[in-house]
Design a protein around this nucleic acid. Structure first.
Lengths: 260, 260
DNA sequence: GGAGAACTGCGATCAATGTTCGCTATAGCA
DNA sequence: TGCTATAGCGAACATTGATCGCAGTTCTCC
């Protein structure tokens, strides 16, 4: 989303640039190593903790040296994102698009759980790295039997990824709010309740009065994961069946876009 | 780390803090004015163009003075976001949840079109401002006849908003890529085609070979809005019908989805 | 009406961060 | 054996968010 009005002679994406050239001394480090360092920092303290200086410190080099591997900090983040995309493991596709996509969605969800900072990485505007391309390839494989044009499939992939991201975001937000700091929970609840009490928002008041806290008990054991899983699956399945054309698979020739 | 467990002792959100106190000279400016300045900057050059200095310059004051109105830059962005949420206009709800929500989604889409930087504003983690609360209230009104618990409705609102955001994001990305800079389009296309040509990604190759440009055939006239609209409506309707329980309206039993 | 408190505007300034420049050492190529 | 392109990096610069303290202003309370 970074705006660059001029962009005269733009440096090519990091995925086009070769990692190193033949001449000169061998680099001590690598893109993968630097990306791993950034990932460690981001996993621990969020994307904001990834600075050129901190990343350089983890790698064990000087800040300026990172620019031999990466043209800009955003490229570092690109590297990090694509590296974690490599954590997908792809099973051979069945013939059921929804089944395969749901499997991928579950992995995506786990990925966001493991690397929450991924939500802060803008997904658009950059070229997809090799692991992202591999992901696209496998989603296309899952969509093989679906009656959509090529471009429509690519757009569907965007929506699919966005949906996974959206669910992960919602899930992370609420589990972070509910578990990490009760004060934030209380802050939001109190805030909304006060607004509701003012009388100007009857529907809000009703919604809040309905069932304030179906969640926490008195025990410290957080049973957060288990009941969430089928909800994710069910919701994602609904989204997917809505996103894809009805799976009438009796190959009747020409593929058509669902629009027009 | 524990500070003051009582009284919500955290630095209170800007929505809790009063805009001004009784004592002291009358402020020359206001939150709304500063937010408007930020919005103008962001509309013109993206969210990155909104710095304390630039915003202060637009308002006509010194950078340090802004901190009399806003505790941090993020609060400025909060103000901006809530101010544009005020651009919604709410029609009296029909009894059709999907219809009403679709209307709201269309407005949201237009909002993102008018203020693309809104996509860069993190939606979670902050208290909703007054206009966001008004939006929630109206979505709840649209959901009045829907068979969901209060908390479930609130969660549905999150998903609904996220879906609108997701569609807007996809739409903006592709219209920006397709129209603004042909070089980026060519860059992505060439990049993917080169990967496809390598032979390791057959499905990608097939998708790219399918139908490169299903767009308009007439040159010159950019008919970009019109053909997009029904697609948005149809897709959003599908998402909504998937998100909501089937609209058995008069309290018949438990609603179920057909997919299992 | 006067004193003090609380607040506003803001110049000056600090710290953090992304990024660049230039120097030296190094490794492949002719 | 030079030539050249590159790696590592110390030093420094520009931008930006944020703070401090001072002077002027307005309200409250006696």
């Amino acid at each position: 989303m970074s705006e660059d009005p001029k962009t005269g002679g733009r440096a090519p994406s990091i995925w086009i640039r070769p990692e190193r050239s033949a001449r000169g001394p061998s680099p001590v480090h690598s893109r993968a190593e630097i990306a791993a360092a950034g990932i460690r920092l981001a996993d621990a303290n969020g994307l904001g903790a990834v600075t050129m200086r901190s990343a350089a410190a983890v790698v064990g080099t000087a800040p300026a040296s990172l620019y031999r591997y990466v043209a800009t900090r955003d490229e570092l983040v690109e590297l990090m994102a694509d590296q974690v995309y490599g954590e997908f493991s792809y099973a051979p596709p069945t013939r059921q698009a929804v089944t395969d996509l749901l499997r991928l969605a579950q992995q995506g969800r786990a990925l966001y759980q493991r690397h929450p900072w991924l939500l802060d990485v803008p997904g658009t505007g950059n070229l997809p790295g090799p692991n992202a391309v591999a992901f696209i390839e496998h989603v296309l494989a899952a969509l093989a039997s679906v009656d959509l044009t090529g471009p429509a499939k690519l757009e569907t992939i965007g929506l699919f990824s966005g949906a996974v991201r959206l669910f992960a975001q919602t899930e992370l937000a609420q589990q972070q709010a509910g578990q990490d700091t009760a004060q934030w929970q209380g802050s939001l609840a109190g805030y909304l309740l006060r607004i509701a009490a003012a009388g100007q928002h009857p529907h809000l008041a009703a919604a809040l009065a309905d069932q304030p806290l179906p969640r926490d008990g008195q025990a410290g054991v957080p049973a957060d994961e288990a009941p969430q899983e089928p909800l994710f699956d069910r919701a994602m399945t609904r989204i997917l069946t809505g996103l894809l054309p009805p799976a009438a698979d009796h190959g009747s020739g020409r593929a058509r876009s669902r629009a027009e």
